[in-house]
């Protein structure tokens, strides 16, 4: 799947300089498309429930067992303050590495693998604090706007204070 999408992308003729390009995995939450750099993604798996963690923010969905290690799952919709996702079997968990840690992000669906040029990354417009906090930038790909997720920001501050 990965390689297929990659080839498609190249044959489409979107001629992007390899050195200056960035490959993203794009996923959707409702109408919104977000992306993370493909090298950070470890695994994509279907939602299969998670054990809730007490005393954490609502966007921490809990923890899952990933081949013997415990990995926390973050609900990206809830993280953007749009309420908790009601996950079904069709929802997807993207497991990624953030520094030394592995985390999962619950999204509606994984859509694509995109190759974009670094030059096409724009700063996040001021205004929506949630966006500026959680996004590294915005990139346009075939007239779609893709928000680049700042993983460190997404997973921080998960613990309830007090």
């Amino acid at each position: 799947m990965d390689s297929l999408a990659y080839k498609d992308d190249m044959s489409n003729g979107s001629q992007v300089n390899v050195q200056n390009s960035l490959q993203l995995i794009a996923f959707s939450i409702g109408e919104q498309t977000y992306g993370v750099e493909i090298t950070t993604v470890r695994e994509i798996r279907a939602w299969n429930g998670a054990t809730p963690l007490p005393n954490t923010r609502e966007y921490v969905r809990g923890v899952i067992n990933l081949r013997g290690t415990i990995v926390p799952i973050f609900d990206l919709r809830a993280r953007f303050g749009e309420g908790q996702t009601s996950p079904t079997k069709n929802h997807v968990v993207v497991v990624m590495s953030v520094g030394e840690k592995w985390v999962g992000i619950l999204v509606d669906a994984v859509s694509d693998i995109l190759t974009v040029s670094k030059d096409d990354i724009h700063a996040v417009p001021e205004g929506n604090t949630m966006d500026t906090e959680l996004l590294n930038g915005i990139v346009t790909h075939e007239s779609r706007m893709v928000g680049l997720i700042d993983l460190h920001a997404v997973v921080s501050g998960a613990k309830m204070d007090g």
Binding site: T51, L53, P54, N55, T56, V63, G68, T69, I70, V71, P72, K101, W102, V103, A158, K159
Partner: peptide
């Protein structure tokens, strides 16, 4: 299993 390995410690929880 450690929770801190991929997350952080939670009060009242010693691990998973």
């Amino acid at each position: 299993k450690s929770l801190e390995e991929n997350f952080e410690s939670i009060d009242g929880i010693a691990g998973g």
